[in-house]
């Protein structure tokens, strides 16, 4: 239970960020002709931002199921890579049923927090880490869909930066201590900016994972890790 609580605590900042993102998703869904409960159902079953936004757009445009399927594959294929990274990080107590259940919660943010843990990740921690953001995601969708237009915009907009603040709090301390990590996050940021301004046709999720992959490959060439566990400990202490 201790692990579940620790996971929930680490999930709070993610949930706050999700609240504002899913809030706009709720507004968008209702504007696209879905009911409040259909919007909430999408958030409960999908738990992803870009894929849901694209899906609602396609539903509203009366696209075929094949188009919908292909769009989801292209937008969400990055999760396969994150899922692979987490498979290497999973504790031996992660039996198959746990893997089936916990993999539902692999979002960009939950992945990032789970994969940067010092020790192998255990199922209970993963469930706690997923549970709070999951609730925030569903609640935000409901609020946005049901009452999006009557709540103060500035407050929800301000919450939108919470998530990114948390990301900086995750990467800056290890980047201070490790030249390699500093280099990798700088390269990723530069490539991400280049994509953003010079390759606008790329979807956000796709651009993000291409930037991250390129930076990680460059990092792996310039600074190969001698022993993953040793380096991880060094960066965290």
């Amino acid at each position: 239970m201790h692990l579940f609580r620790r996971g929930m605590r680490d999930g709070i900042s993610i949930a706050l960020g999700y609240l504002s993102v899913s809030f706009s998703f709720g507004i968008l869904s209702v504007q696209s002709g879905l009911t409040v409960w259909q919007a909430v159902l999408i958030s409960l079953t999908n738990l992803t931002s870009a894929g849901q936004v694209a899906g609602v757009g396609l539903i509203a445009a009366h696209a075929s199921m094949l188009e919908l399927f292909l769009a989801e594959v292209v937008i969400n294929i990055r999760y396969a890579l994150m899922s692979l990274v987490l498979s290497q990080k999973a504790d031996s107590s992660f039996r198959l049923p746990h893997r089936f259940l916990a993999s539902f919660g692999i979002t960009d943010e939950i992945f990032a927090v789970a994969s940067i843990q010092k020790e192998p990740v255990k199922p209970l921690y993963m469930y706690g880490l997923t549970f709070v953001p999951f609730c925030g995601w569903a609640l935000g969708t409901w609020l946005g869909a049901a009452a999006g237009t009557i709540l103060p915009v500035q407050a929800t907009n301000a919450l939108g930066i919470a998530l990114y603040g948390m990301f900086l709090a995750i990467i800056l301390p290890p980047a201070r201590k490790s030249r390699a990590i500093f280099a990798v996050i700088s390269i990723a940021a530069v490539i991400s900016i280049l994509w953003h301004y010079f390759a606008k046709w790329m979807s956000g999720g796709f651009a993000m994972i291409l930037a991250a992959l390129a930076a990680s490959v460059i990092g792996a060439i310039l600074f190969p890790v001698p022993d993953t566990d040793e380096t991880a400990k060094e960066a965290q202490t």
Binding site: A112, I171, I193, A207, M208, S216, A220, T228, A232
Partner: peptide, 16 residues
């Protein structure tokens, strides 16, 4: 090595 750097790179690319 690539898998080790990916989380940091993902977070950075998501933020900026």
């Amino acid at each position: 090595s690539v898998l080790y750097y990916i989380p940091y790179a993902v977070l950075s690319a998501m933020t900026i």
